[in-house]
Design a protein around this nucleic acid. Structure first.
Length: 732
RNA sequence: GGGCGCUUAGCUCAGUUGGUUAGAGCAUCUCAUUUACACUGAGAGGGUCGGGGGUUCGAAUCCCUCAGCGCCCACCA
């Protein structure tokens, strides 16, 4: 009797939710349950992956869907293989992104800004928003079929993770690796906070560049695209060997520039390229990183002329409180009027923008917290190749050692070079942010006394630092903070270091590098052994998907239309590591047909084996034995592809075998035998059909978990397919 | 400027570390189809592997060179 479910074409919408519920109810996403129920040996090898925590600002997009699918394939494979497999979910508080999103909402709905609400009230609003957003993204992840252990779900800003952050900060502070310094930093006037170098996006632009002299008597011309900053100039730097300017070095000129009295000293500094432009640089120490360093070398004063709101602070009435863009025009007009402008030309340059708020970055001198990446310290307990316990090292050296010693493998491996190249150029990391949402810096002040501790000082009268930490500080701890560190939990001992870190290549520096920094330093191990980087998911025309362009494909829409299995395998086949990857609705539609093909083939196998006793193992005919043998080789082949992270190939091979070997050849050939063959031939064929089908459902399960699990049940199996043993050969 | 890639069928891409006649999916064309499946089957056409040079018994694969495309980082006086 055919199961009535099989009488209609496969309808994913009818089955997926109930299948996912079965998995959840079984508790088998949790490795401990797999052990306690006897499906996994207590001493089996472990396999662990931490899900890259999606930001709580957003909804699931194709990139997340790809991440979830690739990781779920690894996880389901290892679970079936018998490993104690942990895939741990969580979300990221995404400090600046989240706060600015909620601020926007509040401003739109109530016309209020952050200071109208105050710190406490804004944080309350954010917490409410975050809870809603978190629920959404968890729900959506489940819709992708992800076999995540929800009982261990973590959040980068919950209490346990906060303890980890404070502990990490304190240790780095005590080792002298975290320091506070007054320096020119990247200030985002829109977000009202500092950001790190990596949070800047450079926008190509064509801007006017002005070549001018400060005054008629000034001997050297300089060029700039930002004339408004020139009221903060303290020097003109030339190359020490530049014959044209040598005679002026050491002179100081007092000038009234656009109504502002300035004092400009001519200095010699080898950082200046004599062949570029006029060969002279106006030095604005307060509003340029490079100039700040020049000024330090020459003991020059720092004169800020722009404030946090990108407005002028000079006393001259025509400039005071003007926006920088207005001041620029005013000064250009003044230069023209005074006949000081020598040349105006359009040049190509980059404008620095904050990636989260799109605010134009204003370099400002500020007191901020930094992590020193090139400072020597004494390494604690090390379990890393090439690094000894107690050895003097820098964070940079730790970060480089993991690739030098091959303790971490990148896929594709050219990212090893990209990573190394980035570390070589790495500067100290600015970690303090002037926003309210995030981990508050665990430092307290009382007069001149500074106290850093995991907890607040017991003594009265201390005030905590107002700033919060860069969101990547807490993300950097993700592989072990999720396992309970700094507590010495069983989870931490069991599942760390993790096996694989799988994520988009675009956050290699933001996240992957920071995890390596934090883990090598704090734990003395690598955070993971393999880094699998997937590319950006693009449209069929190769464009980046974006909400504002309206070309974004919603994975949940695709799931609803074609089934989650179709979406999943579409995101795998043709998607090798490291390369951007195009997806189209046509492709997904094609794999919906594949799910249906599996469905129909199963119906045929069931209907033509109804009189077959499955407990029997008949002797196979020579032809059948050959197919069986070849299929066993195929299993090994596909298993090797999965082991070696070639999911895109494994998926394609499974697809091709099922459709064009099993369905088109084996099944077709069997029809003749079943209807006209001898009883022995018939039994052989029936056994072969069933065994090939059963085994292929197992092999396909990590890729297409829903349809395979459903059919596994239809075929009369009581045990869930998700914890069947990974096949070594085709059996019943 | 530094770094990393890419260029293979009309399109999107494989090609597992050099080995018969270079593959897949989609698209196209022809035919079939009352019997698991039209969300189908059988078959066909289509490539001098970006150009040139070299190494080798043998090169899409290794080396050199030229051209085009892309990404990342830096500079931006």
């Amino acid at each position: 009797m055919i199961d009535e479910r099989l009488l209609k074409p496969y309808n994913p919408a009818e089955t997926e939710d109930s299948i996912y519920k079965k998995w959840i109810d079984s508790g088998l996403f949790n490795p401990d349950t797999c052990v306690s129920k006897g499906f996994t040996k207590p001493d089996a090898p472990t396999f662990s992956i931490m899900l890259p925590p999606p930001n709580v600002t957003g909804v699931l997009h194709m990139g997340h869907a790809a991440t979830l699918t690739i990781e779920d394939i690894m996880v389901r494979y290892h679970r079936m293989k018998g490993d104690r497999t942990l895939w741990l979910p969580g979300t990221d508080h995404a400090a600046i992104a989240t706060q600015s999103k909620v601020e926007k909402i509040v401003e739109k709905e109530e016309g209020k800004r952050r200071h109208d609400l105050g710190r406490e009230e804004l944080l309350k609003r954010i917490a409410t928003f975050v809870e809603g957003s978190r629920t959404t993204i968890v729900h959506q992840s489940k819709k992708m079929g992800a076999s995540l252990d929800w009982s261990r779900e973590a959040f980068t800003l919950d209490e346990e993770r906060n303890l980890a952050v404070r502990t990490a900060f304190k240790k780095m502070y005590d080792d002298g690796l975290i320091y506070r310094k007054f320096r020119v930093v990247n200030w985002d006037p829109k977000g009202q906070t500092t950001i790190s170098d990596d949070e800047i996006i450079y926008e190509a632009a064509k801007s006017p560049q002005y070549t001018f002299k400060y005054s008629k008597d000034f001997p050297i011309a300089i060029a700039t695209t930002r004339p408004e900053t020139k009221v903060g100039d303290v020097a003109v730097a030339v190359h020490p060997d530049d014959a044209r300017y040598k005679k002026y070095v050491g002179n100081t000129y007092d000038i009234v520039f656009a109504g502002v009295p300035i004092s400009v000293k001519i200095i010699a500094d080898s950082a200046v390229d004599p062949a570029y432009g006029t060969g002279a640089v106006g030095v604005t120490p307060a509003h340029s990183m490079v100039d700040w360093e020049i000024a330090n070398r020459h003991n020059l004063p720092i004169i800020p002329v722009i404030n946090e709101f990108a407005k002028m602070t000079v006393a001259a009435p025509e400039l005071k409180d003007k926006k920088v863009t207005e001041a620029r025009q005013i000064i250009v007009e003044w230069l023209k009027k005074e006949n000081l402008l020598i040349k105006e030309e359009i040049i190509e340059n980059n404008i620095s923008k904050a990636e989260r708020t799109n605010g134009t970055i204003e370099p400002l001198p500020k007191l901020q917290w930094f992590i020193a990446v090139e400072k020597k310290f004494k390494m604690g307990a090390s379990n890393m190749a090439g690094i000894k316990t107690g050895q003097e090292v820098t964070l940079k050296e730790l970060m480089l050692s993991v690739v030098k010693e091959n303790s971490i493998t990148f896929l594709p491996d050219n990212f090893t070079k990209i990573y190394t190249n980035w570390i070589d150029k790495l500067h100290d990391w600015c970690i303090s942010r002037q926003i309210w949402y995030g981990h508050r810096i665990p430092v307290w002040y009382k007069g001149d006394t500074v106290y850093c501790g995991v907890d607040a000082p017991k003594e009265e009268g201390y005030i905590q630092d107002e700033d919060t930490l860069d969101t990547w500080f807490s993300s950097g701890l993700w592989t072990f903070s999720t396992l309970g560190w700094p507590k010495e939990t069983l989870d931490f001992k069991t599942f760390h270091p993790t096996n694989v870190l799988e994520t988009g290549k675009d956050i290699l520096f933001f996240w992957v590098a920071r995890m390596i920094l934090m883990t090598t330093y704090l734990i003395g191990t690598v955070p993971f052994k393999t880094v699998y980087l997937h590319g950006t998911v693009r449209t069929d025309k190769g464009e980046k998907m974006s909400k504002s362009l309206g070309n974004a494909m919603d994975p949940l829409d695709m799931n609803a239309k074609y089934g989650t299995d179709a979406t999943r395998i579409s995101l795998i086949i043709g998607n090798g590591p490291g390369n951007d990857f195009r997806i189209s609705e046509d492709k997904i539609r094609g794999y919906k047909n594949f799910a249906n093909k599996i469905w129909n083939a199963t119906r045929f196998v069931i209907s033509s084996t109804e009189d077959f006793d499955r407990s029997k193992q008949p002797k196979l005919t020579a032809d059948d034995a050959k197919i069986h043998e070849e299929f066993n080789i195929f299993i090994k082949d596909v298993t090797k592809d999965i082991e070696e992270y070639r999911f895109y190939i494994a998926g394609e091979k499974l697809y091709h075998y099922f459709w064009h070997n099993f369905a088109d050849i084996t099944i077709e050939r069997t029809k003749e035998i079943i209807f006209h063959g001898t009883p022995a031939e018939k039994e052989s064929a029936q056994w072969l059909l069933l065994s090939l089908l059963f085994t292929q459902l197992k092999l396909l399960h990590p890729f297409m978990p829903f349809v395979t699990e459903e059919l596994w049940g239809v075929l009369g199996n009581k045990k869930l397919l998700m914890i069947e043993s990974w096949p070594k050969e085709s059996t019943l």
